[in-house]
């Protein structure tokens, strides 16, 4: 059972990562900086529980807030660029963060060992959960409480004026600005919210994996972050969840039996899925069908 629970934890963490990119993509921004915010959340929360011996909850929230602060800072210069230029700028930020942690060495004695980030050796001993007797069920529940909270918040936002504003900016910036929407406030808020969500994801990841190093936060992770909402579709927060289950659950874990062929099939299936559902696995039509099937109605 611990395997399935571990997989659920991984899916939960990656869903948060995907949702952090989803918020930004609603405003039409494509960012590869989510891996950097995820790393900041992971290292910050890890340092707080391991070096400062804080409980998990304040450490996790602090990690998320620190990540959000950096996202806020990145949000302003990011306003000056869009499209591919924003992608390049945010990759640069992610790499900056990764290389910072690659060089970070902050070790303190704890009993007969030293703990804390150790440069290339990585950051070990982030064992808050297991060292405090948390069962796999409890860890999984804890992770999913945050996933559900974030999804519920985004789902609610999507149905409020705030969601309409984000989508308006994403659809046509000029039209949105003409309608009196403050682009700076909307984009920076979306970037900050994305950073906060990625920070929660990173903090949870560090504590479920018990170890992080700079290689965890490469461009590949950033690519996964934007792949989830792209593959899942932007019509609903559930699209990102479906895409994470598809990629992490089916393609990465489910195809392990294919051995060497796994990576090839992985790529082909992504192409097949995008061909089959160009607007995402959970596109507007699927959302509508599901709403009807559960008796919630809905119009074409």
């Amino acid at each position: 059972m611990s395997y399935y629970l571990g997989l659920l934890q991984l899916i939960g963490v990656h869903t948060l990562l995907g949702l952090s990119a989803y918020v930004l993509m609603l405003t039409g921004q494509l960012s590869l900086g989510q891996a950097g915010f995820f790393a900041i959340g992971a290292y910050s929360a890890g340092i707080l529980t391991v070096i400062f011996e804080l409980p998990i909850l304040p450490a996790l929230l602090a990690g998320a807030l620190i990540a959000a602060f950096f996202a806020f800072l990145v949000g302003f210069p990011a306003l000056r660029v869009k499209g591919l230029m924003l992608v390049v700028a945010t990759i640069a930020f992610s790499e900056f963060v990764r290389l910072f942690f690659f060089n970070l060495s902050w070790r303190v004695p704890r009993g007969d060992i030293h703990v804390g980030p150790d440069s290339t050796n990585g950051f070990r001993e982030i064992r808050y959960f297991v060292a405090n007797g948390w069962s796999a069920w409890e860890i999984t529940t804890f992770v999913w409480i945050f996933v559900i909270l974030v999804m519920a918040a985004l789902w609610w936002m999507d149905r409020s004026r705030a969601g309409a504003v984000l989508r308006a900016v994403g659809e046509d910036e000029l039209a949105a600005q003409s309608a009196g929407i403050n682009l700076t406030a909307v984009k920076v808020t979306a970037m900050t919210a994305g950073g906060f969500i990625a920070g929660i994801g990173g903090a949870l990841y560090a504590h479920t994996a018990t170890y992080v190093d700079h290689l965890t936060f490469t461009v590949l992770l950033a690519t996964f972050a934007i792949s989830y909402p792209i593959l899942g579709g932007l019509s609903s927060v559930f699209g990102t969840l479906v895409a994470v289950i598809f990629i992490q659950g089916v393609l990465v874990e489910g195809l392990r039996f294919l051995g060497d062929w796994r990576n090839i099939v992985f790529g082909l299936l992504i192409i097949a899925a995008m061909n089959l559902k160009p607007s995402g696995l959970f596109d507007a039509r699927t959302t509508l069908l599901l709403r009807r099937s559960v008796g919630l109605g809905g119009r074409e």
Binding site: S2, N121, G122, R124, E125, I126, R127, F129, V130, A131, N132, G133, W134, S135, A136, A209, T210, Y211, V212, D213, L215
Partner: peptide
């Protein structure tokens, strides 16, 4: 080694330590 360092972290650190729920 990086994968091993991460993986070893999910195992019980000290045998018979009931407060440690590692593998």
């Amino acid at each position: 080694s990086g994968a091993a360092a991460a993986m070893y972290g999910i195992f019980q650190k000290t045998v018979d330590d009931d407060s440690d729920t590692g593998l």
